[in-house]
Design a protein around this nucleic acid. Structure first.
Length: 754
DNA sequence: TAGGCTGTGGTTGCG
DNA sequence: CCACAGCCTA
C-alpha cells in the first residue's frame, strides 16, 4: 500500500480531517453509522504511512471483538506491519504490561486473573469469616462497591478520608465495608491474583508510583487512540492521562465516542470524561461525524426525534442522504405470546417480500429473559436463529472446573481455583475439612496450599490431599516444557474430571461432557494453530494459554457460514447493524426498565439505549409492545413505552393511534399529566384482609424490616430518608406494578411482619 | 459428607 | 415461573 493514498479518497471531508490531524489532542464525536471504525483504522494506517513506527501506536477498545476487527482492518490497509501496532482491549493491553512489570508491585508474571465469580466468592468468604450479616452485606452489593472504589481511584488506604464513602456507609449502616475492602485487597495479593478492576487499577498505581516506568511507556506510546470513549470510567481516563500528560508532551491522543450512545453508566462509565477531556487538553480539536451511512431517512429521523428528549447532550445533528425508505412499523400485541407470534409472522412476510436472509434480521430486547417466546415461534416457523448472551462458555461450571485445575498448576496460590477443585470430583474433602483448613490458613497467615502441608488431619484425609497436591506439582513441573494441550488432557484424565463427566448420561450431563471436549479441542487448537495469541508471543505453554483466555468472554467459533436470525439484548447489539431490526417489549417498566424509574438520569440512559437499538437498523425497523406480559409467574399490565410517543408521526406507519408531536406536548405540560395518570395506575383492590390487619407504630419501622401494606401487601423496607418528622421509607413490594415505592411514614399504615 | 428440599429473589454486562 | 443458595437430614 505504498503508491497512491487511495484510502483518503474513501473518506468524507470531516473523516479525512480527523484521519490526517495526527498531532495533538483530537476528539471525534461519531454518530451511529458515521464510519467511526473506518476513521480509526485509516488514522492508524495514515500514521504508519507517514513514518510512525507501528509499535509506537496504542489503540484501546472495550471488547475483544472490536479489537479483533480493528487489527484485521489495519492489516488489510497497511499489511503485515499492522500486526505490530499495540491494539487491544484496555484489560488485555494493561494485563500484558502488568505481567511484564509484575515484580515492581509484588506480583509474579504468572498472576491469575479472577473473573467476577471468583471475586464474588472471595468476598463471600470474607463476610462469613467476619461474621457479618449476609443480608446487610450482600455479596453483589459489596462487590459493586469495591469495584466502584477502584474505578474512582479510592484505595483502601485513603478510604477513611473519603467523606462521601464514609457517609454512605454510615447511612446504609455498613460500617465494616472498609474492613472488607482491605481484606479483599490483601487476599487477592496473597493469591497472586488480580480482578478485572485491578488490571486497570494496579497499572495506574504503578504509573503513579514509578516515574521511570511511566516514562518508559510514555515514550513507547507516542500516539494513543481510544474507541468508545463515552464508556470509559474515571480510572481508565486517569491512566490515559498519566500516559499522555507530561512535560513537553505532544499530547497525541485521539478519542472517539458518542455521548448519545453511552449506555454503561451503571457500571461506572461517565460522560464527565468527555467534558473533562475538553478541559484537560486546551489545544483540543473536535470533529463531528454527523453523516449516517447506515440507515434510511425515516430511521435517522426517528432516532433524532427520540434523542432530543435528553436535555444534556453534545450538540449535533445526524443526517443521511439515503432514500426516505420504509416508515417505522409499530405492532401492538395483547399478550407477550401474541407479540412473539406477530413478530415471527412479520419476519416471514419480510423475508418473502424483501428477500431478506436470516442473517440480515435481528430481534433486540431489553432483558435476556424475553428471548424465550421468540425462540418458540421461530422454531415453530422453522426459522433458524441464534441467541446471544446468557452464560458464556468460559463461565460454565464444567469449563471453569477444568480451567481451575489448570490455573492451580500455574499458580498454586490461587485460592479460588483450589477451593473449586479440591473436592471435585468428589474425593472426600467436604466443607467441614475445607473450613478447618481455611481457618487454619487465616490464623497462620498462610496460603491455602501451604496450610494443607502444615495442618494436622486424619490420615485418610491427609493422604488424599497429598495425592491431590502431587498431581498438581507433577503437572506444574511438566508444564515448564510440555505444551498446554498435553498438560490439560493429562490433568483432565488424572483428576477424574473427564471420567466423571463421561459417565453422566443425563441430558445436561451430555452437554457438559461436550463442553469439556470443546474446551480441550480449543486448547489443542491453540497449540497446533500457528496463529499468535493475544500476547503476540507464539508461546504454546499452559501459562500462555491461560493468559490468552482469561480475558475472553464468548466462544465465537467459525460459524459465520450458517444463516440465522440474531436474538440479543440491546446492550450487546451496540456496534452492530442489520437490514431489519425488531425492537420488542416496548413497555413502561420493561423498556424503560422498572429499575430506572426513579431518576431522570436513569431514564435518559434508557433513552440512549433505545437510541442505540433503533440506529442498528439499515432499512426496516419494527417496534412492538404487549399489553400484558408474564413476569415472575404473575401477569403484569403495562402501558406502551414513552419512547414510542417520542417518535414523531411522520416517521411511523402504525395500525394503532400514536400520539403526535409529543415534543410540543411535553413543553406544554400535557405529557406530564399523561405520565401522572399512567404512573398511578396501580393495584386497585386490597391485598390484605382489613379484619386481621393491625398497623404498627410508625416509629418502630426500621430499614430491613418486612412489613405489610393494606394495598400493596408484603414489602421490604429498603431505606428511610427525610427529616425525623417527615420520614420517607422506600419499600419494595413484591408482585406489584412499580414495586419500589416511597411511602410517607406519618400517613402510612404498616404492619411489621419481621 | 452428600443429596434433597425449601425459600428467596430476580436489569442491562466488557474484561 | 425458574434458578440457585443454604439448610436439613440420612
Amino acid at each position: 500500500m505504498s503508491e497512491g493514498k487511495t484510502y483518503l479518497d474513501e473518506l468524507n471531508d470531516v473523516q479525512r480531517q480527523a484521519v490526517t490531524h495526527t498531532e495533538g489532542p483530537v476528539l471525534v464525536i461519531a454518530g451511529p453509522g458515521s464510519g467511526k471504525t473506518r476513521v480509526l483504522t485509516y488514522r492508524i494506517a495514515h500514521l504508519i504511512e507517514t513514518g510512525v513506527a507501528p509499535w509506537n501506536i496504542l489503540t484501546l477498545t472495550f471488547t475483544n471483538k472490536s479489537a479483533r476487527e480493528m487489527k484485521e482492518r489495519i492489516t488489510n490497509v497497511v499489511g503485515e506491519s499492522g500486526n505490530k501496532v499495540w491494539a487491544g482491549t484496555f484489560h488485555s493491553i494493561f494485563a500484558r504490561i502488568l505481567r511484564y512489570e509484575a515484580d515492581k508491585i509484588g506480583y509474579t508474571s504468572n498472576f491469575t486473573i479472577y473473573d467476577t465469580d471468583d471475586s464474588r466468592s472471595v468476598i463471600k468468604g470474607i463476610i462469613k469469616e467476619m461474621n457479618l450479616d449476609p443480608q446487610q452485606y450482600n455479596v453483589n452489593g459489596v462487590g459493586a462497591r469495591i469495584s466502584k472504589c477502584k474505578s474512582s481511584l479510592i484505595p483502601p488506604s485513603s478510604y477513611e478520608t473519603n467523606e462521601n464513602m464514609m457517609a454512605a456507609d454510615r447511612k446504609s449502616n455498613r460500617l465494616h465495608f472498609h474492613a472488607i475492602y482491605k481484606k479483599y485487597t490483601a487476599k487477592c495479593k496473597k493469591a497472586d491474583a488480580m480482578d478485572f478492576d485491578d488490571l486497570l487499577y494496579q497499572l495506574y498505581r504503578l504509573l503513579v508510583s514509578e516515574p521511570e516506568i511511566k516514562k518508559k511507556y510514555q515514550e513507547r506510546f507516542k500516539y494513543l487512540m481510544v474507541d468508545e470513549f463515552q464508556d470509559t470510567n474515571q480510572l481508565q481516563y486517569g491512566i490515559l492521562k498519566e500516559l499522555v500528560t507530561y512535560d513537553k508532551s505532544p499530547n497525541n491522543i485521539c478519542v472517539v465516542g458518542d455521548d448519545a450512545q453511552s449506555i454503561y453508566a451503571f457500571r461506572g462509565a461517565t460522560i464527565q470524561n468527555i467534558l473533562n477531556f475538553e478541559k484537560d487538553f486546551k489545544n483540543l480539536t473536535t470533529y463531528k461525524l454527523e453523516q449516517n451511512y447506515r440507515s434510511t431517512h425515516h430511521i435517522v429521523q426517528a432516532a433524532n426525534d427520540v434523542i432530543t428528549f435528553n436535555k444534556k447532550q453534545i450538540k449535533k445533528k445526524i443526517w443521511t442522504d439515503k432514500v426516505e425508505g420504509t416508515k417505522i412499523r409499530v405492532i401492538r400485541a395483547l399478550s407477550d405470546t401474541e407479540e412473539g407470534k406477530r413478530i415471527a409472522d412479520t419476519i416471514l412476510e419480510h423475508k418473502n417480500r424483501h428477500h431478506l436472509s436470516n442473517k440480515e434480521i435481528a430481534i433486540l430486547y431489553r432483558t435476556n429473559a424475553q428471548s424465550r417466546i421468540f425462540e418458540e415461534y421461530l422454531r415453530r416457523y422453522n426459522l433458524n436463529y441464534k441467541v446471544f448472551g446468557g452464560l458464556s462458555f468460559y463461565k460454565r461450571r464444567e469449563v471453569k472446573d477444568l480451567l481451575s485445575y489448570l490455573r492451580l498448576v500455574i499458580n498454586p496460590k490461587d485460592e479460588e481455583a483450589l477451593k473449586r477443585v479440591i473436592n471435585y470430583p468428589k474425593r472426600g474433602i467436604g466443607n467441614t475439612t475445607l473450613q478447618k483448613v481455611v481457618d487454619f490458613a487465616n490464623a497462620a497467615g498462610e496460603t491455602l496450599w501451604n496450610a494443607f502441608d502444615k495442618i494436622k488431619l486424619p490420615t485418610r484425609t491427609k493422604n488424599t490431599i497429598i495425592g491431590f497436591q502431587q498431581m498438581i506439582t507433577i503437572a506444574a513441573k511438566k508444564a515448564q516444557t510440555d505444551d498446554a494441550y498435553t498438560i490439560a488432557s493429562e490433568i483432565a484424565k488424572k483428576s477424574g474430571v473427564y471420567d466423571s463427566l463421561k459417565s453422566d448420561t443425563s441430558p445436561e450431563g451430555l452437554g457438559r461432557f461436550e463442553n469439556l471436549n470443546s474446551l480441550l479441542n480449543g486448547i489443542k487448537d491453540f497449540v497446533e494453530n500457528d496463529e499468535v495469541g493475544a500476547d503476540n508471543s507464539g508461546d504454546k505453554s499452559l501459562s500462555s494459554y491461560l493468559q490468552n483466555i482469561a480475558l475472553l468472554t464468548d466462544f465465537d467459533q467459525a460459524e459465520a457460514s450458517t444463516d440465522y436470525i440474531t436474538l440479543m439484548s440491546v446492550h450487546s447489539a451496540k456496534g452492530l447493524e442489520f437490514r431489519s431490526i425488531f425492537v420488542v417489549g416496548l413497555e413502561e417498566q420493561l423498556f424503560p426498565s422498572f429499575m430506572s424509574m426513579e431518576s431522570q438520569d436513569d431514564i435518559a440512559e434508557e433513552r440512549r439505549l433505545f437510541y442505540v437499538a433503533i440506529t442498528r437498523a439499515e432499512e426496516f425497523l419494527t417496534l412492538s409492545y404487549a399489553n400484558t406480559r408474564y413476569k415472575f409467574g404473575k401477569m403484569a399490565y403495562n402501558q406502551p413505552s414513552r419512547f414510542l410517543e417520542e417518535i414523531s408521526n411522520e416517521n411511523i406507519d402504525s395500525d394503532i393511534p400514536v400520539r403526535q408531536n409529543t415534543k410540543e406536548k411535553m413543553r406544554s405540560g400535557v405529557m406530564g399529566n399523561f405520565k401522572k395518570s399512567r404512573r398511578t395506575a396501580g393495584v386497585a383492590g386490597l391485598m390484605v384482609d382489613p379484619a386481621t390487619f393491625k398497623a404498627s407504630p410508625v416509629e418502630d419501622i426500621q430499614v430491613g424490616m418486612k412489613i405489610m401494606h393494606m394495598k400493596f401487601g408484603e414489602g421490604k423496607v429498603l431505606s428511610i430518608d427525610g427529616t425525623p418528622r417527615n420520614r420517607v421509607a422506600t419499600i419494595f413490594f413484591k408482585g406489584v406494578e412499580n414495586p419500589q415505592r416511597k411511602i410517607m411514614l406519618k400517613f402510612a399504615k404498616l404492619q411489621i411482619v419481621t
